[in-house]
Design a protein around this nucleic acid. Sequence first.
DNA 1: CTTCTTTTGAGAATTATTATCGCTATTATA
DNA 2: TATAATAGCGATAATAATTCTCAAAAGAAG
Lengths: 157, 157
Amino acid sequence: MSNTVTNFTQRTINYEKLLGDFKVLLKKNNLKFTIQREVILETLYNSDEHLTPELLHHLLQDKFPELKIGIATVYRTLSLLEDSAMVTSLSFGAQGKKYELGAKDHHDHLICTICGNITEFVDEEIEERQHKIADELGFTMQDHSMQIYGICKNCKQ
Amino acid sequence: MSNTVTNFTQRTINYEKLLGDFKVLLKKNNLKFTIQREVILETLYNSDEHLTPELLHHLLQDKFPELKIGIATVYRTLSLLEDSAMVTSLSFGAQGKKYELGAKDHHDHLICTICGNITEFVDEEIEERQHKIADELGFTMQDHSMQIYGICKNCKQ
DNA sequence: CTTCTTTTGAGAATTATTATCGCTATTATA
DNA sequence: TATAATAGCGATAATAATTCTCAAAAGAAG
């Protein structure tokens, strides 16, 4: 494959950095740094899946049973993180909203309409183009999300 | 503006064609062509907004009060249309899922995170690139959606 | 027109999300 | 490190969104 358009990148932000950013964000807004908020961030960081609030809640109950984290706290924290653009959500088809950490690294999604599997990719050309378009329309770009829907290799058989 | 990246296009499929496609789709799946399904398609076609199920339901009640279309029928029909890729949905931030007719014309979205306004655009370079990426990953592309989030001109003040 | 099957609307049921509230944890300050 | 002030927590109630159920109505095919 000589002319690769895709560029699978690794997580570029380490957890310490991320946590630091989170703390700064909280302080700036007079919000408190709590153990619940920390483990939610950590769990999102360590998950490679796109998580629904319920799924995340289950994960948290498994990993930190002693904290008895409530579903309301999960929703509250996800909203907080989304408002601050630290996580982004995507929704498609019948399935509900799914969240992922935005800071891990920019990537877009290839979604199989049969098996629901998600492949992530990054394409610099598209990234650049998006910035140009936003600029031209007098828009200050904060984030983006892109999904390509289709049938994956496996499901074609 | 000499080097326009965006290209605002008009609706390219007329309603008769769309309705014909819908009828074929229904027949193929042993589904019946009902007046409810027709007016939902028509209302989506005639709307330039991105509609939530509730909003669409209100529109239908206003325009076709004699049909007393139920909210369940709206949901059922939207799912049907989405499964058949005739409409696509998008969701962002706190606001719920919104639906639009996919066949009107391909376009992507610029979404203002403050006022929620949506600007549509088309960029050929991105479209091409998407196809290339899908091909390269052994994926048969069916559709795509792209959103750029940011702050619009008006909200910057 | 008749028969067969699917769809519909109404509303019940379920699921998802948000709000409330008394208690606890965190932070800033002394 | 003790204290006071305040924000966040979990539990659960309330609300909103979506899906299900079912009897009646409507479409398709002959």
